[in-house]
């Protein structure tokens, strides 16, 4: 049985080409069994237009490279089956991030800047002697940290965020989740005062309007709304208690 005819309407632009103007181009192809957008886009590049730009790496929903707007919604393209979509599919690059070309955006630059700003690493002062038995950790705590550590920095939450559209320096759910993750980590010796200095602003956790688009579109199903609410509460308490508070 021949597959459906699909029409992929792709928002295209190559900023490297002075002659390029943003436009929608339509590509038609026949749906194959179990086709994902990874398969479809590669087929377009191989057979219809070799210049089409997009990013895939793991093609297994692990690396977070292929976030894009699929029918207006931020998703991982590799994990999107065409059979779950209609015959007309619109694809556009994630908003907020710098456009590299067509469906490829510079999430790497954005995420590195976020990491530098929020210092998303364990802050410890004691040097560790790796010859010796490691520090113990509560098994439940380790699992709780992993729950938040699963973020793949795909940028879907930022692209789905109302605040991020209005405030270019907003840290996004991805940033607040990082703070929540390191806050849970007993190896990180920062206090809530330190966290407050990083995200206690309108570009931080107080910028969130609780639209919860982030959690709706997170491909990893991270509990972003809960973390945002929790961190906001902690930061408010820290602010009220004054900068000496260390929770």
């Amino acid at each position: 049985m021949p597959g459906r005819r699909l029409r992929l309407h792709v928002l295209r632009h190559n900023p490297q080409d002075p002659a390029s103007v943003p436009r929608v181009e339509t590509f038609e192809l026949t749906e194959s069994d179990g086709m994902t957008l990874f398969v479809a886009l590669n087929e377009i590049r191989a057979t219809l237009d070799p210049s089409l730009q997009f990013d895939f790496v793991c093609r297994a929903g692990i690396c977070g490279s292929c976030g894009m707007l699929v029918d207006g919604r931020p998703r991982l393209a590799c994990r999107t089956l065409t059979r779950d979509l209609g015959p007309d599919i619109t694809l556009a690059p994630l908003p907020v991030f710098e456009l590299i070309g067509d469906l490829s955006v510079n999430t790497g630059k954005w995420m590195r800047a976020m990491a530098e700003r929020l210092e998303t690493w364990v802050h410890a002062v004691d040097p560790v002697d790796c010859d010796r038995i490691e520090q113990r950790m509560d098994p439940d705590r380790a699992e709780q940290i992993y729950e938040l550590d699963r973020c793949i920095e795909c940028g879907c939450c930022v692209a789905g965020c109302g605040t991020a559209r209005m405030r270019p320096d907003f840290v996004g759910a991805v940033g607040v989740n990082k703070i929540a993750r390191f806050r849970l980590d007993p190896r990180d010796q920062r206090t809530d005062t330190d966290h407050y200095l990083l995200i206690g602003t309108d570009d931080g956790v107080f910028g969130c309007m609780t639209l919860l688009g982030c959690e709706d579109v997170c491909p990893k199903g991270l509990p972003l709304a809960t973390q945002l609410a929790f961190i906001r509460r902690r930061m408010a308490v820290t602010a009220l208690r004054g900068p000496a508070s260390t929770s």
Partner: peptide
């Protein structure tokens, strides 16, 4: 290898722990 896994533990990898 044991040194490397312990270094990663100190840096923040949430290794599963013995219960």
């Amino acid at each position: 290898a044991p040194k490397a896994v312990r270094e990663l533990a100190a840096w923040g990898v949430p290794w599963n722990r013995v219960r």
